[in-house]
């Protein structure tokens, strides 16, 4: 019996199941940790303490929040477009989970090393937009709708520079597999060769996750809560969870592509990987509590007139130098 189980675990399908469970666990823990960290960091940046009373250092705080949201009334506004309204918070999770499958946490810790890993991530991350649009449209709320429309325009605009910034790395590494990209950075991190691509990717990544200064889809002072205005309880928690997981994914990809992923001396690979990722997460949180929000036209101008030409130029130069 035990042997059978071990055998099953050893098989590809078994690995996949264990991986998925692991990923789910990681997603939840990561989101809980990040909400706590966000509030704590914000608190300290704002000359206060942040959550403190609930558990040591307020560490139980996110669990209390999650339980409370779980225990809330399941409320469906009367006028909503039910299929879309119900489906959106679930659908936003698909790209999040799939992205985790290909991210190498360590040299041996990866659910599946797909040889077109980065394509999988980029392709699936587009689904996020779809679910936001569904949420906005299905809510029958004007604020939600404007939030959703903003989100779509923003995500489409910023996906292009994001992709263009990753391409030079793919060219340098000569591979689409994430693990191989990390392996190629054994000596030198790609951020040294491609600093511009790193910056472009990071800015686009912040925009993709709808964080300040690009948090237009949920701009509180304009759109109340944006596309998730009408969501409450657990459904709202799912959007929250997805947002924080997305922040981690953007940071993890940046760490993988530019900062050498799990490569590093002395400490085990996974520690290096998490350190690098969470450092970038910290920067994203830091940005949020420092900057005001950009305006919609400025946001799009910045992408189409600033980032995309720059990314193209960078790609061209890299390609040219590689040929020589």
């Amino acid at each position: 019996m035990v042997n059978d189980l071990l055998k099953l675990a050893g098989s590809d399908a078994g690995k996949m199941v264990i991986g998925l469970v692991g990923v789910l666990l990681f997603v939840v823990v990561n989101a809980l940790l990040l909400t706590w960290a966000e509030r704590k960091i914000a608190g300290h940046m704002q000359r206060r303490i942040g959550p403190k009373e609930v558990g040591p250092f307020g560490l139980i705080q996110p669990i209390a929040d999650a339980l409370k949201l779980l225990g809330k009334e399941i409320l469906t506004p009367a006028k909503v477009d039910k299929p879309l309204y119900y489906l959106a918070p679930t659908l936003i999770f698909v790209p999040v989970l799939v992205s985790f499958i290909v991210i190498p946490f360590d040299a041996s810790l990866q659910v599946a090393d797909i040889n077109v890993g980065i394509l999988v991530i980029l392709a699936f991350s587009s689904i996020t937009i779809l679910s936001i649009l569904m949420a906005g449209w299905g809510s029958e709320n004007k604020y939600s709708l404007i939030g959703a429309i903003r989100s779509v325009a923003q995500n489409i605009a910023y996906e292009i520079p994001m992709l263009l910034a990753l391409l030079p790395v793919v060219m340098l590494a000569n591979s689409l597999s994430l693990r191989e990209i990390v392996e190629k950075q054994q000596g030198l991190w790609f951020v040294v060769i491609q600093p511009l691509a790193f910056i472009i990717y990071f800015i686009a990544g912040v925009a993709e996750t709808n964080r300040t200064p690009f948090d237009l889809p949920e701009a509180e002072s304009e759109l109340v809560a944006g596309y998730h205005t009408e969501y409450s309880g657990m459904r709202f928690a799912l959007f929250f969870l997805a947002e924080y997981t997305n922040i981690f994914i953007v940071s993890a990809i940046a760490a993988t592509f530019f900062l050498g992923g799990y490569q590093g001396p002395v400490l085990p690979g996974i520690v290096w990987f998490l350190l690098k990722s969470y450092l970038l997460v910290f920067v994203i949180i830091w940005l949020r509590w420092t900057y005001p929000r950009v305006r919609f036209d400025q946001l799009l101008n910045f992408a189409w007139k600033g980032l995309i030409p720059l990314a193209f130029l960078n790609l061209l130069i890299t390609g040219g130098l590689l040929k020589i």
Binding site: A42, M45, Q46, R47, R48, T212, P213, D215, A219, E220, S221, W289, T290, Y291, P292, R293
Partner: peptide, 16 residues
């Protein structure tokens, strides 16, 4: 005003 523009931290600084 800065909170209107999306920056929340100055709000707490001025309250201080």
């Amino acid at each position: 005003y800065l909170a209107d523009l999306g920056a929340l931290t100055p709000f707490l600084f001025v309250f201080d």
